[in-house]
Amino acid sequence: MTSNSPVGQDFWDELRRTTQARIGLGRTGTALPTRRVLELAGAHAAARDAVHIPLDVERLAAQVREIGIGEPVLATSRASSRDEYLRRPDLGRQPAPGTDIPESGADIGLVLADGLSPTALDRHGAALLAELVSWLRDRYTLAPPIIATQARVGLGDHLGAAARVRTLLVIIGERPGLSVSDSLGIYLTHLPRPGRTDADRNCISNIHPPDGLGYARAAQVAAGLVEGARALGRSGVDLKDRSRTEALGPPSGSEPGIQPGHSPRRR
């Protein structure tokens, strides 16, 4: 028998407004109904494709060129394949031998990194970069943007140090979930250099309009963090996002997108 009868549907539809969790799926015998099995498999396939389909670097470079802050510089990590990238996070944090990043001495460096979702960078990277540039270009000098592949956040420390930028923003594809596979994060590191840790960074995550954080809002928060980091002389745990003005915000953790670390973790 199945209990996913129309009778219960209103009941579950109402509850589904409170959570994205896959509740009230019904059953056939003890199992998930066919439709639900196919939905889950489809969502997983999209997440896997987001991880594995490589970034179209040429296409992104063309879009980035249009933004007008210089010819994009291409870089890659020591991980030579997706397989190696997934197995060896340490290699994804180091530049490939022979990586040549021009020194700029600019206030801000911008890195577009594929991370765990090249799809996210493909969909949102250029638009987010354009928004960031519009928030930052009047106040700071910007280094030519870098497009980095097989890249982890820590690769930015090497690239930013080589470019001699003061503050580095790494825009990176976040680990795909089943409901969202195209989410970007921005990691800010002041005075980037090899050896920086997550405690030295600030993160704006869950950027994927229209459902997640929008480009303008993310760029606004990033600009506020840049200003704060420059004033404080460092980034990381001591630097707080003060772009929100609400006297009494929502309970901590319920603001999508602005987090001290990266992905949710167990304690």
Binding site: A21, R22, R27, A43, G177
Partner: peptide, 25 residues
């Protein structure tokens, strides 16, 4: 076990309640 095997907070897949029911059966 989590609803539909999809943990929407931690962003990973575990077992669904149905999976447990089926194995118990």
């Amino acid at each position: 076990a989590v609803p539909g095997a999809d943990d929407v907070m931690l962003g990973y897949q575990s077992l669904s309640f149905h999976d447990v029911l089926t194995t118990r059966r």
